[in-house]
């Protein structure tokens, strides 16, 4: 992986439009994703250890909203809120949406993004490191995780979801699914 192309930035017009659209559909999906992740990736929480008690602000800097992640195994939460309504957090991880998704899918190395200043971290560095390492080891695929939200339909939805994410990823340059690293590899 030697990054030769810049990280895609979410189009400004799209971000402006999102500012006026309701957040509840995304908030609903994100809210359902957190407990599903707990159920499907138990080892991630063992790796997080006591850092699972922290609150993480996941800040896609090119979008008008943020995610507030509380990865407590007993009551996990992933809230989607406007940036100005984020409230308290222990650690903040900020960067273009494409960089954050690419980190989850193993398309980027977190330290390299930090060195190049594409990724900003603030607050509790120990918590950020633990989260980064826990996610990296789980080899999460968001297309697969989204399919899992469909319950019994997961097995038939995963394939098409990953193919769609892969095609969209090739078009946008964003690693929307694991193994579809676009121009990054």
């Amino acid at each position: 992986m030697s990054r030769e192309t810049p990280i895609p930035i979410f189009p400004a017009a799209g971000a402006a439009a999102l500012r006026h659209l309701p957040l509840w559909p995304l908030a609903l999906a994100a809210g359902r994703l957190a407990p599903s992740l707990v159920r499907r990736h138990e080892k991630m929480f063992a790796r997080l250890g006591e850092q699972a008690e922290k609150t993480f602000l996941i800040d896609p800097a090119d979008l008008p909203f943020v995610f507030v992640l509380s990865p407590r195994p007993d009551r996990p939460r992933l809230d989607t809120v406007r940036r100005e309504a984020a409230g308290h957090w222990d650690a903040r991880v900020a960067g273009p949406l494409a960089a954050l998704i690419g980190l989850v899918h193993g398309a980027y190395d977190g330290d390299a993004l930090f060195f190049s200043r594409d990724l900003v971290i603030e607050g509790d560095t120990e918590a950020v490191l633990a989260l980064r390492n826990a996610i990296d080891n789980e080899e999460i695929d968001l297309a697969r995780e989204a399919s899992a939200l469909l319950g019994p339909l997961e097995t038939i939805a995963t394939g098409p979801a990953r193919r769609l994410a892969g095609a969209l990823g090739r078009w946008t340059g964003v690693a929307l699914t694991r193994g579809e690293n676009g121009p990054l590899t």
């Binding site: 992986m1 193993g106 980027y108 190395d109 330290d111 390299a112 980064r132 990296d136 080899e139």
Partner: peptide, 14 residues
């Protein structure tokens, strides 16, 4: 060892 799987794979392959 503190780096990601992505780094490890890229550097090892190279």
């Amino acid at each position: 060892r503190q780096r990601s799987r992505a780094y490890t794979e890229a550097v090892v392959r190279n």
